[in-house]
Nucleic acid binder design. Structure first.
Lengths: 97, 97
DNA sequence: CTCACAGGCAAGTCGCCACTTGCATATCAT
DNA sequence: ATGATATGCAAGTGGCGACTTGCCTGTGAG
């Protein structure tokens, strides 16, 4: 469960995918591939990204919806919310200026 | 930098070590080994835990202090504080009831 | 219908990581 | 000093994970 989330976050390419989806949600596989190479300087093949997306989805960090021949990928940050709180002392509410 | 932190968190044994140090800070290697086997049901060798502690330390999640023949391990949660905030939308301040 | 496009599946390769094994060093009690 | 305690170092092994390669399925435009 949380093990899948941490394993998914262990790979830098997958974290960059999450970055890209944070900036623009609901992208297809090809869009993600294109933007990873151009904007982030990553030369990853389509199959590699496809497998990364599968890992992210089975970790619950991505939800997908099919529409015709397109498959859109939506970010789901819910598994991230309290993933590190187990090690943090009970704190004063954080400031978000 | 953050890559080391995520890689360190990828291993379930290392996360359990952080759990143990959260509960009781400043333990030695042998203390951690003993408590992992008894309380957490993990049968890890001393050398294995030693290498895990080295990974956690180089990730900045643990600070160590020598005292005679003992080496105490102190938790450092600072690298964890904002490790996932890059994917979280700017939020209303969380409630800590 | 036909073909280009978007994506899926599966086997295989390669490198890294967790763990072991064996020995070495340092500190303290007696 | 001697042995027990606490830890360190380094080479070797096994398995998992990231990536490739090749082919297949489904969808929609012309």
């Amino acid at each position: 469960m949380t093990d899948d989330v941490f394993k998914a976050l262990a790979d830098p390419t997958r974290r960059t995918v999450l970055d890209e989806l944070t900036e623009r949600d609901g992208q297809t596989l090809f869009e993600i591939c294109a933007r990873l190479t151009t904007k982030h300087g990553l030369a990853s093949s389509r199959q590699a990204i496809s497998q990364h997306l599968a890992v992210l989805e089975s970790a619950g960090l991505i939800r997908t919806r099919r529409q015709g021949r397109y498959k859109f990928h939506d970010l789901n940050t819910e598994p991230l919310e309290h993933i590190v709180s187990r090690w943090l002392k009970p704190e004063r509410p954080e400031r978000h200026p």
